[in-house]
Write a protein that binds this DNA or RNA. Structure first.
Lengths: 116, 116
DNA sequence: TAAAGTGGTAACCAACAAGTAACCAACATG
DNA sequence: CATGTTGGTTACTTGTTGGTTACCACTTTA
């Protein structure tokens, strides 16, 4: 969502969408809702995200104060991610959004155009 | 957010982001929260959106059952937009998101890199 | 000696979102 | 006859996102 442009917009919706409005961010936040996890664990939990995209997603969420990144200088290296207070306050909103969708979602898969 | 791909995803967050996660959609929904408005009025309320982008935004929100489009066969033509029930249930969530942002937003404009 | 695990980077690419500017039909008005 | 109003459309350009694949350093294990 052109994150760097909207991050300091006058509009709070543009700002919150700059934080939340990308493919994987809500998923990553939700995955960390009640646990700390390592890079590889988040990657395994989510499954279909690529390492590169997970890296930039985590980096941006850290920049925006949503999560903490803790590096342990061991071998092999260990890096842990967990939500900040600010990040935790986002959880009920994410859950509400998912609930809203579930309540209003009708599977209209027949509308999907699959070109043979 | 690659709307057509995620619209029928298994993940409710991907689905709701397919509806809400673009630059102008939450703004348009919010603009219609307690009134019906014509194309030109929405354009005037929001101000900085282009006609082309407003057209596709409105069309997609109608497709997703968030708003109604009513065409009056007059001259000059009149077209009115208003939220559906489904769209109206989104309002408290949008307000919560904006509130969340306002509560956690610190203006760190000095971090913006403005290349001279 | 070779492989495996960890948390990433770098180079490259396709698809999509959003923006600009010009243009349109159909009349009403001056 | 020219201009304005309304709700758009068309063609074109740019910027961003997400994806793939290969690769890295370092150390332990087989």
């Amino acid at each position: 969502m052109a994150r760097n442009i909207f991050k300091y917009s006058d509009c709070p919706m543009h700002r919150s969408m700059a934080i939340l409005g990308s493919k994987w961010k809500p998923i990553v936040i939700y995955a960390l809702r009640e646990r700390t996890a390592r890079f590889g664990q988040i990657h395994a939990i989510i499954g279909s995200i690529s390492k590169k995209v997970l890296t930039t997603t985590l980096k941006e969420l850290e920049e925006d104060g949503i999560l903490n990144r803790t590096e342990y200088k061991e071998l092999p290296p260990r890096v842990e991610y967990n939500l900040t207070d600010k990040g935790r306050t986002l959880i009920p909103i994410i859950i509400q959004l998912a609930k809203w969708d579930n309540e209003h979602y009708e599977e209209k898969r027949e509308k999907l155009e699959i070109t043979p």
